[in-house]
Nucleic acid binder design. Structure first.
Length: 793
DNA sequence: TGTAACGTTAGT
DNA sequence: ACTAACGTTACA
């Protein structure tokens, strides 16, 4: 299509219509029949929940889909929802009815979760049938509820029949919307599903794989009203199974990622989880009071599973030498129940310790302490592959129907996701938010992991000396090389496999449930006030205390600024943690973040205002060329390796969108106010671009830019330029080609109030004094330091 | 294999 | 009737 539509007018659009764009599908009979009858393959189209954060957002106007919309001047051919508004929990349409009794869902008519489940509509991800579980009358087999999607399960019939859903052309399951239309690599994950490979992703760690039948249900229900959890796409493929598949063979899931997690109605439903365990058993999940059951189960199960995991882990990880890391949250998750606000049980602890290693299986595994970036990178792929191999082997030798292969994973998830699981229990009432817990669970630790190690890293890793100059000092050019950039950008980062999930939306619980069932006297906001004073590292520790704190501490208000400066390696889990916390400011300076990772990040941080990428590679920074971050105010790309004029052009130039209707000539960085270009080999040609595309530029750091001259300043302050009026602060320190002449140019700037010319060999003290004298007529400047001029008052 | 485009459904 | 957009198809 690109070609035929390359003409770029809207008018052309009509022509195009007539001419029939290349991609126009041939006429087809039309998608799914309505009515959701029992025919398999007749699927009810889902619709947005209207409640999740994504649904509540307004269109960004910037994404691929928005640009296609007529309202944004596009041709309106794609007909897709704004990327920022991809519903995380698409629901069944209101018109959906039970294929057995013909009636709608009636869960609103009862209070009890178990009852609700029986009369709510459930859509089978395999046969697409929508029914009230109660109408099925099938009690001998269990249904498997898909926690990822509201009202979705594998009905008892299909489950019992061993259908895999794959039959329906690799179905993704209801509500699983591929973001396939999205350009770039950002959203590749969905597709992955197809090939089975579910990769470990941050989210994976938190999959809600339920374990028991009813509990999950209950939980899900609760969540449902609060907040939809994840995105449609992920559910299927990625989330649930990712970890699992990675870790071990999961024939079935593989076939149909959608399927999954919990069994209902099945006496031994839980078997899935405990398969290894076997010790504990649920009677009838449906009728059981899940709470303690779950707890109990967990206890034992965990233990055994953990061991298995460990073993498995050892095997997987050569020598079992993983980096040590603390999975605080995991511990928290596994050990504590909602009500428990304090100390984990010794047993739990022990288990945790024993199994801590296993967690490393997850790609997240925070920053490796001593592991080199490369190493850690390599690790990922390794894991990814491993499982596959195993899968095939096991598949061959095992009854795929069994869920056994899932165990280790599950146990892991239990550990990591525990909050959710626990919630399943009756105790779940307090939070009852799978999503929240999930997020918190996995993320708390991830962050903790990286925050902690970071310290060490900081201490030991080579760091360019700080410049003596104030103003965002920057590492001197020559002296040191950029920290491990050499081994930087992870190549095989599986970003593609990451689930795209907005931050938690459900309101966190307001109270802190105690063991006695009551709430702590201090309400959430009070606690939050306290948390506000904690360092991130401490917040991470707090996140281990209990689920409630875990959620509270993940509040984005506490994470407006995330600093990963010089963090050795950026792991998937960290990325996920970042997304969840939705920082306003993100410092990734001197990290080896890859382009894909950065792209993935910024596309998910709509509120990002400050992005610091100094010392990163241009390859990574180039992600800004293709990703949208219209609200970015501060961009720090100083000392970016390979960033020269040509790259600056790529960075600043408006997107070249040839599609009809695309006439946005504005730069993606048009709202940048503070730009840091220290240490770059850029010339006036880059400055011209700045002048042209950054009309709001107020602070500009050109220190250590050896190509900057008086002429450069002349350009920036020339009549007719926006910078002439917008520039308030400029740093030209260590720009040896700048002379006193530049000072005369600065007199033209109406807003200038800070001029840093320190260490500029050709700038004289006399020149500065003269500037001050001449400016004194209108503005009083002073010398803060030698060659450092600042407006007084 | 990636994704633009489309027919049709869901909601107002 | 209209808009939004889901889920699928087919082109490149």
């Amino acid at each position: 299509m690109a070609m035929s539509l390359s003409a770029d007018d809207e008018e052309y659009e009509s022509d195009a219509e007539q001419q029939k764009p290349p991609n126009r599908p041939k006429q087809k009979s039309g998608p799914l029949p309505v009515g959701g009858s029992k025919q398999s393959s007749a699927r009810r189209r889902r619709t947005r929940c209207r409640k999740c954060e994504a649904c509540l957002r307004t269109e960004c106007g910037e994404c691929h889909f928005c640009k296609d919309m007529k309202k944004f001047g596009g041709p309106g051919r794609m007909k897709q929802s704004c990327i920022m508004r991809q519903c995380i929990a698409p629901v069944l349409p209101h018109t959906a009815v039970c294929s057995v009794c013909g009636e709608a869902g009636k869960e609103d008519t009862v209070e009890e979760e178990v009852e609700k489940f029986k009369i709510m509509l459930m859509e089978c991800s395999i046969c697409n049938e929508i029914v009230h579980p109660l109408c099925l009358k099938v009690t001998d087999v269990g249904g498997v509820v898909n926690d990822e999607l509201p009202n979705c399960w594998e009905c008892p019939k299909c489950n019992h029949a061993g259908k895999t859903g794959k039959a329906n052309k690799q179905k993704r399951g209801p509500g699983f919307k591929y973001a396939s239309n999205l350009p770039g690599s950002l959203l590749k994950e969905p597709r992955l599903g197809r090939d089975i490979k579910e990769e470990p992703s941050p989210d994976v760690i938190t999959p809600p794989m339920a374990v028991t039948a009813i509990a999950p249900l209950i939980k899900r229900k609760l969540e449902k009203d609060e907040v939809p959890k994840q995105r449609p796409e992920e559910p299927l493929k990625k989330r649930p199974c990712a970890l699992a598949s990675e870790l071990q063979p999961r024939p079935k899931l593989e076939e149909n990622p959608l399927r999954k997690k919990r069994k209902l109605f099945e006496a031994d439903a839980d078997s899935a989880i405990r398969k290894k365990k076997k010790a504990v058993k649920l009677d009838d999940p449906l009728t059981q009071k899940s709470s303690h059951l779950i707890t109990t189960e967990r206890g034992t199960e965990q233990e055994s599973d953990d061991q298995e995991v460990v073993e498995e882990r050892m095997r997987d990880q050569e020598g079992g030498k993983m980096e040590e890391f603390e999975d605080e949250e995991e511990r928290m998750d596994s050990e504590q129940t909602v009500g428990q606000v304090v100390a984990p049980s010794p047993l739990a602890r022990r288990i945790h310790q024993e199994t801590s290693q296993s967690h490393n299986v997850c790609p997240q595994a925070g920053p490796s302490n001593s592991e080199s970036g490369e190493k850690s990178q390599a690790r990922v792929p390794y894991k990814l592959q491993r499982p596959r191999q195993r899968i095939s082997n096991k598949e061959l030798s095992r009854d795929t129907r069994e869920e056994p292969q899932v165990q280790p994973n599950i146990s892991q998830m239990l550990k990591t996701e525990s909050p959710e699981n626990e919630e399943d229990g009756e105790e779940s009432k307090p939070l009852s938010n799978g999503q929240g817990s999930r997020c918190n669970g996995g993320n708390g630790s991830d962050l903790a992991d990286w925050l902690r190690p970071r310290r060490e890293v900081n201490g030991g890793s080579p760091r360019p000396p700080l410049s003596p100059l104030g103003w965002r000092r920057s590492p001197p050019p020559s002296s040191q090389s950029r920290p491990q950039l050499s081994c930087s950008p992870p190549k095989n980062v599986q970003m593609e496999r990451h689930v795209i999930r907005p931050p938690p939306i459900s309101p966190p619980p307001d109270g802190l449930p105690l063991e006695d069932g009551r709430n702590h006297v201090m309400r959430r906001e009070v606690w939050m006030a306290v948390f506000t004073h904690l360092a991130h590292k401490d917040l991470c520790i707090c996140m281990r205390v209990c689920k409630t704190w875990n959620r509270w501490c993940c509040d984005k208000r506490l994470w407006t600024r995330i600093d990963l400066n010089r963090c050795k390696s950026i792991t998937p889990l960290m990325l996920s943690g970042i997304i969840r916390r939705q920082p306003v400011s993100l410092d990734l300076s001197w990290t080896n973040i890859s382009k894909k990772q950065l792209s993935w990040l910024i596309n998910r941080l709509p509120g990002l205002r400050f992005l610091l990428l100094s010392g990163c590679s241009w390859v990574a920074v180039s992600a800004l060329c293709t990703s949208s971050c219209p609200l970015l105010r501060t961009l720090d790309v100083q000392w970016v390796e390979g960033l020269k004029d040509a790259q600056m052009k790529d960075l600043l130039s408006p997107p070249t969108d040839n599609r009809p209707g695309q006439t946005d000539n504005r730069s993606k960085l048009r709202n940048v106010v503070d730009l840091r270009l220290a240490g770059l080999d850029i010339t006036d040609s880059s400055l011209r671009l700045l002048i042209r595309y950054m009309p709001l530029l107020s602070r500009l750091d050109l220190s250590y830019c050896n190509h900057v001259t008086d002429q450069s300043v002349n350009l920036l302050t020339a009549a007719g330029t926006t910078t002439r009026d917008s520039l308030a602060e400029i740093n030209l320190s260590v720009c040896n080609r700048v002379t006193d002449q530049s000072l005369t140019y600065f007199k033209r700037c109406g807003s200038i109030c800070h001029i840093d010319l320190r260490y500029c060999k050709q700038v004289t003290k006399e020149g500065c004094e003269q500037f001050i004298a001449e400016m004194s007529v209108s503005v009083q400047f002073g010398l803060i330091e030698e060659k450092l001029l600042r407006k007084l008052g």
